[in-house]
């Protein structure tokens, strides 16, 4: 305070940065990880003396000031309750937790399509016009449009002999076969993918009683399966005994 009663205030009193607050010396900053490293040789004696904590805090404060300075220089935009600074990617190499995801291997069809130049095209809508009900219905699945199996009457073609075969069961059988073929190719593709170690995470190949060709467990009826499974297996075991020892067991 001077004689005239005028108060002198230095920038330090106001808390204005003078430049001395920043870290002196080299500082390796990885702003993407909000990280910094001071590579200068450390004064071991200072960190083991009685005022160790003060030395620690002072070093940390200077480094933090530099880091905050760099953070506030980054481009950004104001948001509610602060300012959002755009961070660059971190430059310190850190190991991943899991390996990089491998691309899904092409299925047999995808390979063929690529060879032939067949391109996938996206449908505009999942709906299709249903002639019977005169309404828009889904293309596939439950209550699908133009469902053959939902027709109450199948008209015979001219000259076709009726009564020999049930056309409804014929339709159902052909559907079953298409499903079975699709399942088979799915399994084949999964096996190929598994060989290359690229099976999707949601799939797993396991030892099992294969679905059989054309007729899976559901087709035979849920009640019919367990009995036949056991009988078949027993026969197989018995047969293998014959092959191995030459003596029929049982």
């Amino acid at each position: 305070m001077t004689e005239n009663g005028i108060i002198k205030i230095t920038p330090a009193d106001l808390g204005v940065l003078s430049g001395e607050e920043y870290h002196q010396g080299q500082l390796d900053v990885d702003i993407g990880n909000l990280s910094a490293w001071d590579p200068a040789p450390i004064d071991a004696a200072a960190y083991q003396g009685p005022n160790r904590e003060e030395v620690c805090t002072e070093t940390a404060r200077a480094m933090a000031q530099t880091l905050v300075g760099q953070l506030f220089q980054l481009p950004g935009e104001p948001v509610k309750g602060g300012r959002l600074a755009q961070l660059p990617a971190g430059k310190t190499p850190l190991p991943r937790e899991k390996p990089l995801p491998k691309p899904k291997p092409p299925t047999k069809w995808e390979k063929f399509a690529a060879q032939k130049g067949i391109q996938k095209r996206k449908r505009e809508s999942k709906l299709e016009w249903d002639e019977g009900s005169q309404s828009w219905r889904r293309r596939h699945g439950y209550k699908k449009a133009n469902d053959e199996s939902e027709i109450p009457i199948i008209e015979a073609k001219p000259g076709e002999q009726t009564g020999a075969e049930d056309p409804f069961s014929k339709l159902a059988e052909s559907k079953k076969q298409r499903v079975a073929t699709n399942k088979k190719s799915q399994l084949q593709n999964a096996k190929l993918a598994d060989k290359e170690g690229q099976l999707p995470a949601t799939l797993k190949l396991a030892q099992g009683l294969g679905s059989g060709s054309g007729s899976n467990s559901k087709a035979a009826g849920p009640r019919a399966l367990p009995k036949s499974k056991r009988r078949e297996l027993k026969e197989e075991v018995r047969f293998s005994c014959v092959l191995d020892s030459g003596v029929v067991v049982g």
């Binding site: 294969g210 679905s211 036949s228 197989e236």
Partner: peptide, 15 residues
């Protein structure tokens, strides 16, 4: 009902 063909050594797809 058809008898399922059983192949114990065959792998199956688990989803």
């Amino acid at each position: 009902p058809q008898q399922p063909q059983l192949e114990p050594s065959k792998t199956k797809l688990v989803t």
